[in-house]
Simulated assay, not measured.
Amino acid sequence: MTLTDRLIAPGATRSEAALCYSSAALGAATAGVLARDESALVIVVVALVGFDLFGGAVVNATAAAKRWFHRPGRGTRHHLAFVAVHVQPFLLALVVPGFGWVAAAAVYTIMLAAAVAVTSAPPHLRTPVAFAAAVFGVVITTAVLTVPAFLLWFGPVLLIKLLLAHLLPAAGAVDNPV
């Protein structure tokens, strides 16, 4: 398995790979620049989180990733596990002053609850449920929670990556309920 197979998905086209790697690099640069007034450790961690989330949002939207993550035998428990391993809110709480544990727990809980709502919805309602969860999650993570201004992108991009890009199968496809 190649690096691209592991980071994007088996069968990713050159165009998909170029777009994914470019988005990840630009996301890392954007996140790092936004955190420029912070310590070196914070800048590095925020840039790495930016690489993962910006790149991952694009990766999860590719046809190759849709085929890979929604292939036969991959169902609800796999999708929820994928969401659950996204512990970046707690990494940020550990490293970034002003990104507290309450905010981290709230973002993580919103993310998991939204993922459960999406995967529990009937197939014909998963897309609108995912969008409803994402828009309300964006409001909570940007207007209700207190996080440093340079991380206001974090909650929305995390929700886009997981709810809209990862959990939704390709248009016209039906996800596996397993």
Rank of each mutant, 00 (worst) to 15 (best):
residue 68 W to N: 06
residue 134 A to F: 15
residue 81 A to E: 08
residue 108 Y to L: 00
residue 87 V to D: 01
residue 155 G to M: 12
residue 68 W to R: 08
residue 138 V to H: 07
residue 147 V to E: 04
residue 67 R to K: 14
residue 73 G to M: 11
residue 45 V to W: 02
residue 114 A to G: 15
residue 71 R to G: 12
residue 7 L to F: 07
residue 13 T to Q: 05
residue 47 A to Q: 01
residue 163 L to A: 03
residue 30 T to E: 08
residue 138 V to C: 13
residue 31 A to S: 11
residue 68 W to G: 02
residue 41 L to E: 10
residue 72 P to S: 12
residue 78 H to S: 12
residue 142 T to N: 06
residue 21 Y to A: 07
residue 135 V to E: 02
residue 151 L to E: 01
residue 155 G to A: 12
residue 18 A to Q: 04
residue 133 A to M: 13
residue 71 R to M: 11
residue 118 V to T: 06
residue 67 R to H: 13
residue 148 P to A: 03
residue 46 V to A: 05
residue 111 M to W: 07
residue 167 L to P: 09
residue 132 A to H: 06
residue 82 F to R: 10
residue 78 H to Y: 14
residue 109 T to F: 08
residue 29 A to P: 00
residue 49 V to T: 11
residue 16 E to V: 06
residue 123 P to H: 14
residue 80 L to W: 04
residue 134 A to T: 15
residue 92 L to Q: 05
residue 139 V to Y: 15
residue 57 A to G: 14
residue 105 A to L: 01
residue 114 A to V: 03
residue 126 R to D: 04
residue 30 T to R: 13
residue 104 A to C: 05
residue 78 H to R: 07
residue 2 T to W: 06
residue 18 A to K: 05
residue 37 D to R: 12
residue 55 G to T: 12
residue 120 S to W: 13
residue 40 A to I: 15
residue 62 T to W: 03
residue 52 D to I: 02
residue 53 L to K: 05
residue 47 A to F: 02
residue 156 P to D: 12
residue 34 L to P: 03
residue 140 I to M: 05
residue 165 A to Q: 09
residue 62 T to A: 03
residue 20 C to R: 01
residue 163 L to H: 10
residue 119 T to C: 12
residue 8 I to G: 00
residue 154 F to I: 07
residue 151 L to P: 02
residue 17 A to R: 15
residue 144 V to K: 05
residue 15 S to F: 14
residue 69 F to A: 10
residue 143 A to Y: 05
residue 30 T to F: 15
residue 35 A to W: 01
residue 121 A to S: 15
residue 19 L to H: 01
residue 81 A to R: 15
residue 12 A to E: 07
residue 55 G to P: 09
residue 165 A to S: 14
residue 135 V to P: 02
residue 6 R to V: 10
residue 2 T to D: 11
residue 65 A to L: 02
